[in-house]
Design a protein around this nucleic acid. Structure first.
Length: 291
DNA sequence: CCGAAGCCCACCGTTACGTCA
DNA sequence: CGTGACGTAACGGTGGGCTTC
């Protein structure tokens, strides 16, 4: 495997892509977001209510388009998804602990256990009346397989596909949506790890290459000194020692003001040093970026 | 045509539940 | 039996695209 084989990976890590998203909000956007926030505060007012109330779920409040879909939650569920899946999304997560404490764990646990054992179907209202905690759905194998297959076909869903899958799997569309979101995140994470490994290898290779070139340079320097020795006395001062290295970028430059001289004409071409271009990894040589 | 407002969706980071060693 | 680690469902916040007015 050659140098280029490893390093010419065309990698594009998401790390950099994230920066503008999180780090830079220009004025227009800020204003826009403030407006959006106002809107969301209005739309989500029910979320700030204690979940003991009969306020609508997030889905009901946020997405009128899927309003009908979410009523599936009240429908019959199959298998282990059953009642548990109907619970999710109906409680404010920040208030869950308080609620659990307030309810009294033992009694609640008994109730939940009963529900699990009997595999009974509970409507949204039932859980809201209890101030239900955030419960977690465990997908059964069939559901998982279907979702996986669907994900292989397309990593994002159209509303129609979402609805279709939800009906097929006896899940709420919101749950299908969340599963795809998390699945995409997992895929991305895996890919990032793979990219990271590749970059590590690339970095190692570059380090090796760098060492090799440094060594080669030293040899060339000593060769040059040896060859120039007989002529040394006849040459102008400074000509022999003119081959220097830029301390910041480590490029080879000729002496007479080559570095920063602007025209670059005094820079020794890399091709004279070896078959490969002289390339420094900015990860291991941050200063090289300044050149 | 332009801008504001509203809606929808994807992504991100985080939280919390369920399981297992 | 208690506990910490881990996987992951669910959540809230944010930004961008699109449509409507």
């Amino acid at each position: 495997m050659g140098f280029d084989d490893i390093c010419n990976t065309g990698l594009g890590l998401g790390i950099y892509r994230q920066l503008p998203q999180n780090g830079h909000i220009h004025q227009d956007h800020h204003q826009h977001q403030q407006q959006k926030m106002k809107k969301k505060q209005i739309l989500k007012y029910d979320h700030s209510l204690p979940s003991l109330t009969l306020g609508p779920s997030e889905d009901h409040a946020m997405k009128s388009a899927t309003k009908a879909d979410d009523h599936i939650a009240g429908k019959v569920y199959g298998d282990q998804a059953s009642s548990i899946s109907a619970l999710s999304s109906f409680s404010n997560s920040s208030s869950v602990k308080k609620e659990r404490e307030a309810i009294g764990g033992e009694e609640e646990d008994q109730e939940l256990e009963l529900e699990r054992v009997s595999n009974s179907r509970v409507s949204d209202e039932d859980y809201e009346d209890q101030g239900s905690p955030r419960k977690k759905l465990r997908l059964n194998k069939a559901q998982f397989a279907t979702l996986e297959d669907s994900f292989k076909e397309h990593s994002t869903l159209t509303p129609k596909q979402k609805q279709g899958l939800a009906e097929k799997l006896n899940l709420r569309p919101r749950q299908v949506e969340v599963w795809f979101q998390n699945r995409r995140a997992r895929t991305k994470l895996k890919q990032t790890e793979v990219d990271c490994e590749l970059l590590k290898k690339c970095c190692e290779t570059l380090t090796e290459e760098n060492k090799r070139l440094q060594k080669e340079l030293q040899e060339l320097k000593s060769l040059k000194v040896a060859a120039a020795a007989p002529l040394f006395m006849e040459m102008p001062a400074g000509a022999v020692t003119s081959l220097t290295m830029c301390p910041s970028c480590e490029r080879i430059c000729s002496g007479g003001g080559g570095v920063g001289s602007g025209d670059g004409s005094s820079t020794v071409p890399f091709s004279t040093l070896g078959p490969k271009p002289h390339f420094f990894n900015p990860f291991t040589h941050p200063s090289a970026a300044s050149c």
